[in-house]
C-alpha cells in the first residue's frame, strides 16, 4: 500500500507544473485573451527563480521572483496585444520563442550551480502515519499551493462578482464595455495573472521538482498546459484532472517498464498524451457545454474606440 501512496505523491508532484501553468492560462483565456507564450513564461520564471535562489540562498524568494518574472514577461505580451492590438497568436508564439532564448541567455552563468531546493513537507509524527501520512502531509509545499490556487480560482470565477465580470469580458467585450467595465484593464490583469502562474510553474521545476537550471528544462510542458486548457473546455476541475492524469499516466508507464511489462516504450511514451486527450474529450463531449464554457471572444482583439 505504501507503494500506492508513493505513486500518488509522485503523480501530484509530476502534475503540479502543469496545474500552475494551465490554471493561469485558463484565467487569461476566460478574459478572452489567448496567450500562447506559456512555455516562454515558464522558462523565464524557472531561470529567474533559480538565479534568485542561488544568489540569496532562499528558494522561496526564488519562487516569488519567478512569479514576478512570469508576470513581467506577460506584461510585454499584454502591451503588444491589448494596447497596440498585435495579433495574439503571432505575439504569443513570439513570446514563447523569446522566453526560450532569453532564459537560456541570462541563465548562462547558472548552469553549474547547485542549490538547496524546496523539500517535501515533513510534519513530525503525521507524515509517518501509515498510508495517509505521506498522502496528506508528504507533498512539496508548492503542491499544496497549487491546490489552494485551484480552489481560489474556482471560487473566484464562479462565486464572485469580479469573476463574473471577467467571464463577461471574455464572452462579449463590447457589451461589457458598453455597461462600463474597463475591458482592457481587466484583460491586462488576467494576462498578468496567467504569466505569474506560469512563472510559478517554472519556478516549481527549477527550485523544487528538479533543483537545477539548464536551457529548455521545461521540455514542452508549457505547450501541454495550453492544450490541457482547451481539452478541459475551460473548466478548472478538468484542468486539474487532466494535469494529474497526464502526470499519473507518465509515471504509470515508468512503473510498468520497471515491473518488466513488455510493451514498446515508444507506445508507453505516447500514452500520457493519448490518455489525456481521450479522457478529456470524452468528459467534454457535450457540444453545448463547450460553447457555454468557451470564451466567445477568445483571441479577438478589442478596441474600445471601434
Amino acid at each position: 500500500m505504501d507503494q500506492v501512496a508513493e505513486l500518488l505523491v509522485l503523480t501530484l508532484a509530476a502534475g503540479t507544473p502543469l496545474v500552475f501553468a494551465a490554471l493561469g492560462e485558463l484565467v487569461t483565456e476566460k478574459s478572452g485573451v489567448l496567450n500562447l507564450g506559456v512555455e516562454g513564461m515558464m522558462l523565464v520564471g524557472a531561470v529567474t527563480s533559480f538565479m534568485v535562489a542561488a544568489t540569496t540562498g532562499s528558494p522561496w524568494l526564488g519562487v516569488g521572483a519567478g512569479m514576478l518574472a512570469g508576470a513581467a514577461l506577460s506584461l510585454v505580451f499584454a502591451v503588444l496585444t491589448l494596447s497596440l492590438m498585435a495579433n495574439q497568436v503571432a505575439t504569443g508564439l513570439a513570446l514563447s520563442l523569446f522566453g526560450i532564448g532569453l532564459s537560456a541567455f541570462v541563465g548562462l552563468g547558472y548552469v553549474s550551480i547547485v542549490i538547496e531546493g524546496i523539500a517535501p513537507l515533513g510534519v513530525p509524527g503525521l507524515s509517518d502515519l501509515p498510508l495517509v501520512g505521506k498522502l496528506l502531509f508528504g507533498h512539496n509545499p508548492l503542491v499544496y499551493l497549487s491546490l489552494a490556487l485551484f480552489a481560489a480560482i474556482r471560487w473566484f470565477l464562479y462565486r464572485t462578482r469580479p469573476g463574473l465580470i471577467l467571464r463577461a469580458v471574455g464572452e462579449n467585450p463590447q457589451s461589457a464595455h458598453a455597461i462600463g467595465f474597463p475591458v482592457v484593464r481587466i484583460r491586462y490583469l488576467a494576462v498578468m495573472f496567467g504569466g505569474a502562474c506560469a512563472g510559478i510553474g517554472g519556478a516549481y521545476l527549477a527550485v523544487a521538482y528538479t533543483p537545477l537550471w539548464t536551457e529548455g528544462m521545461t521540455a514542452g510542458r508549457g505547450w501541454i498546459a495550453l492544450a490541457l486548457v482547451v481539452f478541459a473546455t475551460w473548466r478548472p476541475w478538468r484542468v486539474l484532472a487532466g494535469a494529474y492524469l497526464f502526470g499519473g499516466v507518465t509515471l504509470a508507464t515508468f512503473q510498468a517498464q520497471a515491473l518488466g511489462v513488455t510493451v514498446p516504450s515508444q507506445l508507453l511514451a505516447m500514452l500520457p498524451y493519448l490518455a489525456t486527450i481521450v479522457v478529456l474529450a470524452i468528459i467534454s463531449r457535450d457540444a453545448t457545454a463547450i460553447r457555454l464554457n468557451a470564451p466567445a471572444s477568445l483571441g479577438r482583439p478589442f478596441h474600445p474606440g471601434l
Binding site: M85, A86, A94, L97, F98, I100, G101, F105
Partner: peptide, 26 residues
C-alpha cells in the same frame, strides 16, 4: 483613427524579429 490591421501586422513582425534574435543569440 489608427488602422488596427496594419498595426497588428507591424507589431507582430517586430515581436517575431525580437524573439528570433534572442533565440539566435546563444
Amino acid at each position: 483613427m489608427p488602422d488596427p490591421q496594419r498595426r497588428t501586422a507591424l507589431f507582430a513582425t517586430a515581436a517575431l524579429t525580437i524573439a528570433a534574435l534572442a533565440a539566435a543569440l546563444p
